[in-house]
Simulated assay, not measured.
Amino acid sequence: MKITLSSLLLTLFIIITTTFSHLSATVDVIYDSAGNKLLNGIPYYILPLLRGTGGGLTLSSNINNNNTCPLALTQEPFELSYGVPFIITPIVFDEDFIRESYPVSIKADIVADPCQGSKIWKVATGDVVGVTLGGVLNTPESCFQVVEDDMMPGLRSYQIQHCPFKCGLNSSTSFSCYNIGVVSGAGGKGFLAPTDVIFPVVFANSFGGTSVVQSL
């Protein structure tokens, strides 16, 4: 039987679709703090799991090098401050829900940005490494994933990780992901950066009614 290019492409499409459907059925969905599935395109506050460890994630001037731009990801010092909301978007597969270990983009849901640049997270490199805005979709420096951690049995929480090898064109031979957590900056202010320390977080819907911080 003669195999045409169109039949070969059709077969390849069926294989890819079937494989993706199987993976989607087996990979766990991420849930918000109210027990609802984390939705693509919906803004959420990113809050620490443990009470008394500060508030939600927010934006500040770049405290690493004293520059105003790009804005850096920091943590509110008071636990009742939820910070600003963020939108998590799948990069490779366009689904309604956010799934564990899938590469995602994280974007600040803000109207006014004094830097007037991209609102996508990226891991800045150079003299000081930290998480800032100014990222580009589907690039190694803006590639993240969310995985469930087991910090407190019975309480569902997650760890955000930077996974550069999962997005774009990456010349690195490393297939590692790195925890994103809060480290101490100038004046004791906490800012986001790759770290060995686990920073368990929960996601609270910013539309109201479901913004609940889990407590121990």
Rank of each mutant, 00 (worst) to 15 (best):
S33R: 04
N66Y: 10
I15W: 10
E79D: 15
A108H: 03
I3L: 15
Q75Y: 03
N179Q: 04
D109N: 14
C167W: 14
P70K: 03
I160C: 05
M152C: 12
D109M: 01
P103Q: 05
L50Y: 08
N65W: 07
V212A: 05
F97M: 04
K37G: 01
A112T: 01
A25C: 12
T68I: 08
S206R: 06
G56F: 10
L38P: 02
A34K: 15
G41I: 08
P153I: 05
T53L: 06
D32C: 05
A112N: 07
F144D: 13
H162C: 11
T210P: 00
T19M: 01
L5K: 14
G154Q: 05
V197M: 08
T139S: 14
Y44D: 04
V123P: 03
A193K: 01
Y82T: 14
S118P: 09
C69F: 06
S174Q: 07
N170D: 15
L9A: 15
N66F: 08
V183S: 08
P85D: 12
D149E: 11
V146E: 03
L47V: 13
N170M: 08
S21V: 09
L38W: 04
P43F: 03
V111A: 10
G154N: 07
C163M: 09
I16Y: 09
K166V: 14
T89M: 11
L57M: 11
K37P: 01
V123S: 05
G130R: 06
I42C: 03
S60D: 12
N179R: 07
S105D: 06
K2A: 12
Q145M: 12
L49M: 14
